[in-house]
Deep mutational scan, measured.
Amino acid sequence: MTYRVRIENADGEVVTIEISADELREKGLTLEELLPPNARIVEVEEVEP
Protein backbone atom coordinates (compact mmCIF):
# COMPACT_ATOMS: atom_id res chain seq x y z
CA MET A 1 0.00 0.00 0.00
CA THR A 2 1.20 3.51 -0.79
CA TYR A 3 0.17 6.74 0.89
CA ARG A 4 -0.04 10.16 -0.78
CA VAL A 5 0.52 12.69 1.99
CA ARG A 6 -0.06 16.42 1.75
CA ILE A 7 2.10 18.32 4.24
CA GLU A 8 2.04 21.99 5.18
CA ASN A 9 5.50 23.21 6.13
CA ALA A 10 6.41 26.05 8.50
CA ASP A 11 6.20 28.58 5.63
CA GLY A 12 2.61 27.59 4.84
CA GLU A 13 3.63 25.84 1.62
CA VAL A 14 1.78 22.58 0.94
CA VAL A 15 3.80 19.76 -0.60
CA THR A 16 2.81 16.23 -1.55
CA ILE A 17 4.90 13.12 -0.97
CA GLU A 18 4.25 9.45 -1.62
CA ILE A 19 5.57 6.75 0.68
CA SER A 20 4.87 3.04 0.87
CA ALA A 21 3.78 1.21 4.00
CA ASP A 22 6.76 -1.12 3.46
CA GLU A 23 9.15 1.85 3.58
CA LEU A 24 7.61 3.05 6.83
CA ARG A 25 7.88 -0.43 8.36
CA GLU A 26 11.52 -0.82 7.25
CA LYS A 27 12.42 2.51 8.86
CA GLY A 28 10.31 1.77 11.93
CA LEU A 29 8.66 5.18 11.67
CA THR A 30 5.19 6.69 11.52
CA LEU A 31 4.14 9.41 9.10
CA GLU A 32 4.31 11.96 11.92
CA GLU A 33 7.90 11.01 12.73
CA LEU A 34 8.93 11.77 9.14
CA LEU A 35 7.71 15.37 9.33
CA PRO A 36 10.17 18.23 9.54
CA PRO A 37 9.83 20.58 12.54
CA ASN A 38 6.76 22.84 12.52
CA ALA A 39 5.06 20.88 9.73
CA ARG A 40 1.67 19.24 9.82
CA ILE A 41 -0.20 16.63 7.82
CA VAL A 42 -3.04 18.15 5.81
CA GLU A 43 -4.37 15.01 4.11
CA VAL A 44 -3.50 11.33 3.74
CA GLU A 45 -4.82 9.30 0.83
CA GLU A 46 -4.27 5.61 0.11
CA VAL A 47 -3.24 5.00 -3.49
CA GLU A 48 -2.78 1.80 -5.44
CA PRO A 49 0.82 0.58 -5.65
Results as ranks from 00 to 15, higher is better:
E45N: 08
R25M: 11
E18V: 14
A39Y: 13
E18Y: 15
E13K: 11
A21S: 10
T2W: 13
I17K: 01
I19V: 09
E33T: 05
L24P: 00
G12V: 00
L35Q: 01
G12I: 00
E26G: 06
N9M: 15
E8A: 08
E33P: 00
L31F: 07
K27F: 07
Y3W: 11
R4T: 03
T2E: 05
E8P: 00
I19R: 00
E18Q: 07
E43I: 07
K27Y: 06
V47C: 07
G28A: 05
L34Q: 02
E45G: 04
E13Y: 09
T16W: 14
P49T: 14
E26Y: 08
V14H: 08
E45V: 13
I41W: 04
L31G: 00
L24R: 01
N38Q: 07
P37C: 05
V44N: 01
E46T: 13
V14I: 15
E48A: 14
D11E: 11
V14M: 12
V42S: 02
R40G: 02
V42K: 04
L31D: 00
V44K: 02
V15R: 08
I7N: 00
E48K: 13
Y3F: 11
T16V: 15
I7R: 00
V15F: 15
A21W: 13
L35V: 09
E18S: 08
E32F: 08
E48V: 14
T2V: 15
E26W: 09
R40T: 06
Y3K: 07
E43M: 13
G12R: 02
T2P: 01
T16R: 02
L34Y: 14
E43A: 14
R4S: 02
P37F: 06
E32W: 09
E23Q: 09
V42Y: 04
A21G: 09
T30G: 04
E32P: 07
V14F: 13
V42P: 00
E8C: 13
P36E: 06
P36A: 05
I17Q: 01
P49H: 13
E18K: 04
Y3A: 03
P49E: 11
V42I: 15
L29T: 06
V14N: 05
T2G: 10
T16K: 02
T30A: 06
E33Q: 14
I41P: 01
D22K: 13
E32T: 10
R40A: 04
G12C: 04
A21P: 04
V47L: 12
D22S: 12
V47A: 05
E13V: 12
V44Y: 06
S20H: 08
V14D: 03
E13P: 01
